[in-house]
């Protein structure tokens, strides 16, 4: 199958101009967009730059905007993205582009760090593991699936307009601990997300839920944090 890919190219070492370049490759319909990018990089233009690591939808490195939607290149089959027409591939939006499909993820990770995504407890550590019932574990199961690919945050129109907004991913990261029965940092985390740039900026457009390659119900998680804030104490 002949496939045409239209890639957004940017290399600040050569030019400040952004350009679109078209490549033709021969792939199987069941190949992934990442395979087509590999074919281009390995056989046609070695300067093409993109991130990928595990290439199997777990590491979260290769989130990109494919045909206008944020997806993981390694989980998107060519046959599912209308391969009869040129497939457009761009970097995810709202973060500074470094080169081609690679963006600077630092602002994204900074927002994640600020919700303190680690277990916070008081008192002495138990000598055994912290026991948790299956029901308590299930309460936050959905948000443990996050792989930090940034597909949700960079699909959020509020985040595009205001980079200070924590973004869906940081709220998902906080949700994972806020609803963990073992964690005791709930009050701190809720206070952080009660900020002007916190959960109240969410406009429930559901872009994040649609973008998540792990199927996390992101908007629902954000709403649950809002509810927890309203009914806290």
């Amino acid at each position: 199958m002949d496939v045409t890919l239209k890639l957004r190219r940017y290399n600040p070492e050569v030019s400040d101009e952004v350009s679109w370049e078209t490549f033709s490759v021969v792939q199987q319909p069941t190949d992934r967009v990442l395979d087509a990018l590999h074919t281009i990089k390995w056989d046609q233009d070695g300067t093409l730059t993109f991130r990928r690591s595990c290439a199997h939808g777990v590491c979260g490195s290769d989130a990109m905007r494919i045909n206008g939607r944020n997806r993981l290149a390694c989980k998107t089959l060519l046959k599912d993205v209308n391969p009869g027409k040129p497939i457009t591939v761009e970097p995810i939006q709202g973060l500074p582009v470094l080169k081609d499909l690679v963006v600077d993820m630092e602002p994204f990770f900074a927002a994640y760090k600020s919700v303190m995504p680690f277990l916070i407890t008081d008192g002495n550590e138990p000598t055994r593991e912290r026991v948790q019932s299956q029901k308590d574990r299930d309460r936050f199961d959905d948000t443990t699936k996050c792989i930090l690919c940034a597909a949700c945050t960079t699909s959020c129109p509020v985040y595009w307009a205001d980079g200070q907004y924590f973004g869906p991913q940081a709220i998902v990261g906080a949700h994972r601990f806020i609803f963990d029965s073992r964690d005791e940092g709930t009050a701190q985390r809720l206070e952080i997300l009660n900020d002007n740039e916190g959960v109240w900026r969410c406009r429930t457009t559901f872009n994040c839920t649609e973008a998540c390659p792990r199927g996390i119900e992101v908007t629902k998680a954000i709403q649950e944090v809002k509810r927890a804030l309203i009914f806290r104490r």
């Binding site: 900074a110 927002a111 760090k113 600020s114 303190m116 680690f118 200070q164 206070e191 952080i192 009660n194 900020d195 002007n196 740039e197 916190g198 109240w200 809002k226 804030l229 309203i230």
Partner: peptide, 21 residues
């Protein structure tokens, strides 16, 4: 210790109340 990268505005429930309102 992980430093918070952003300055949190003064503790206020204004956005919460305006959302509820």
């Amino acid at each position: 210790v992980i430093q918070a990268p952003r300055n949190l505005a003064s503790k206020s429930n204004f956005e919460l109340y305006s959302w509820l309102f």
